[in-house]
Computed example of a mutant assay.
Amino acid sequence: MTFRDIVPSDADWLVPAHAVHYAREEGFDDTFGALVADILAAFLRERDPDRERAWIAEEDGRPLGSIFCVPLDEHTAKLRLFLLLPEARGRGLGRQMLALCTEWARARGYARMVLWTHESHRAACALYARTGWSLESSKPVHSFGQDLVEQHWSIALR
């Protein structure tokens, strides 16, 4: 497994990978893929390489995951578009990707990092809890055609 910087052509894989995975695993509707496309387009268009980074995890040239670090404000980084396809799970790659992203944010001087997810992403939430993240808030929502419990997590980087 290698981790490389994102390139614009990764959009051809990244958007459908998220959309298909979450439609199959959680019943998310097409609005989720549209959200991913919007996030990715803004990142590619407006990226500040000193403050933002994205990695693609790949094996033998095949992309298997993604993770993004973007600024929320001057002192806070936001983790986005964290995905590890099911066939790549169970090998510690999610933990590696999360560590890579948080260490990069720490090295850039961010004081904390936050993320938004759903309670139904149980493996990811368990990973966050095991690696020092704190659940800050949780509330029921109706998003992507589903009744979900939205969660906000954070971790201190200093």
Rank of each mutant, 00 (worst) to 15 (best):
M1Q: 09
D10L: 09
D12L: 14
D12G: 13
L14I: 05
L14A: 11
H18R: 06
A19C: 03
R24A: 14
E25P: 00
E25M: 14
E26W: 15
G27T: 09
F28K: 10
D29E: 02
D30L: 08
G33I: 09
A34H: 12
L35F: 14
L35K: 14
A37V: 09
A37M: 10
L40P: 00
A41N: 11
A42E: 15
F43E: 04
F43Q: 04
R47K: 13
D48L: 07
P49M: 11
D50C: 11
R51L: 06
R53V: 09
A54E: 02
A54D: 00
W55Y: 09
I56D: 02
G61E: 09
R62S: 06
P63Q: 08
P63K: 09
L64V: 12
I67E: 00
P71S: 02
L72N: 13
L72E: 14
L72M: 13
E74D: 14
H75C: 11
L79A: 06
L81K: 11
E87R: 12
E87N: 10
G90Q: 07
R91F: 05
G92M: 01
G94W: 07
R95L: 03
R95Y: 01
M97Y: 01
L98K: 05
L100Q: 11
L100C: 05
L100P: 03
C101D: 04
T102N: 00
T102V: 11
E103Q: 15
E103P: 00
R106K: 15
R106M: 04
R106T: 12
A107V: 04
A107N: 10
R108V: 08
R108D: 01
R108C: 07
Y110S: 03
R112W: 02
M113S: 10
L115D: 03
L115F: 06
L115E: 04
T117M: 08
H118C: 04
S120F: 12
R122I: 12
A124R: 09
L127V: 05
A129E: 14
A129T: 03
A129C: 02
R130C: 06
T131C: 11
T131D: 14
G132S: 02
W133C: 01
S134W: 03
E136W: 07
S137H: 03
S138G: 08
K139V: 13
K139R: 15
P140H: 14
H142N: 09
F144D: 06
G145F: 10
G145D: 10
G145K: 13
Q146V: 00
Q146G: 01
L148Q: 05
V149G: 03
Q151P: 02
Q151I: 08
H152V: 14
H152C: 13
H152R: 15
S154V: 00
A156L: 13
A156S: 12
